[in-house]
Amino acid sequence: MISLEHVSRSFAIGDQQVYALRDINLEIAAGDYLSVMGPSGSGKSTLLNLIGLLDRPSSGTYRLDGRDVTALNDEEQAGVRSGKIGFVFQSFNLVPRLTAAKNIELPLMLAGISADLRKARVEVLLKDYGLLDRADHRPDQLSGGQRQRVAIARATSMHPAILLADEPTGNLDQSTGREVIDLLEKLTEQHVALVLVTHDPAIGGRARRQLHMLDGRITD
């Protein structure tokens, strides 16, 4: 489904080139469960952003379902993000003025799905993630675990083929983090590919495929 060939990403800082990613080769199939581990600054987030089409490689090719997606324009890339990719962030990134239900509905609204259909899907997601009694609460009225559940529900609302989670447990205590990982793992059973960035070996160790990064390279 996803294939990265000789992908590099460098940033120009002054007149110096800083490489965040060097010659990455990676295949991800539908339903894969991948963890990405490595020290801070090793390029984990950069890799995730690239896969999520939030960033473009400096060189190399990125194919998604056989199509070279780096050549797409902004509108087309947005379409791919909307239809195929879900993001879960360390800091949840919920819109503070919107209720839990409205936050979950956001990707559906951006995709132009009808209000009736949206309502039905949000209802199911609220139920699945145990948020029915929190539907009308704003993020500041929710606990950390509830916020991340809202974020996961939002990330899955468009039924993405791939879920990208960048240290999703980073801001949660251990037991809440566990629950969140359980929820994400459950999604891989439904054929969603999961790329999970973490620096916790206990969490990363659960993945079927484990990637270690150092200095912009995949070391194994």
Binding site: L54, D74, A78, V95, L106, R154
Partner: peptide, 12 residues
């Protein structure tokens, strides 16, 4: 940034 990640194009 979030809206972009969730699939909103620049024009949106």
């Amino acid at each position: 940034g979030l809206l972009k990640a969730l699939g909103a194009p620049a024009s949106g």
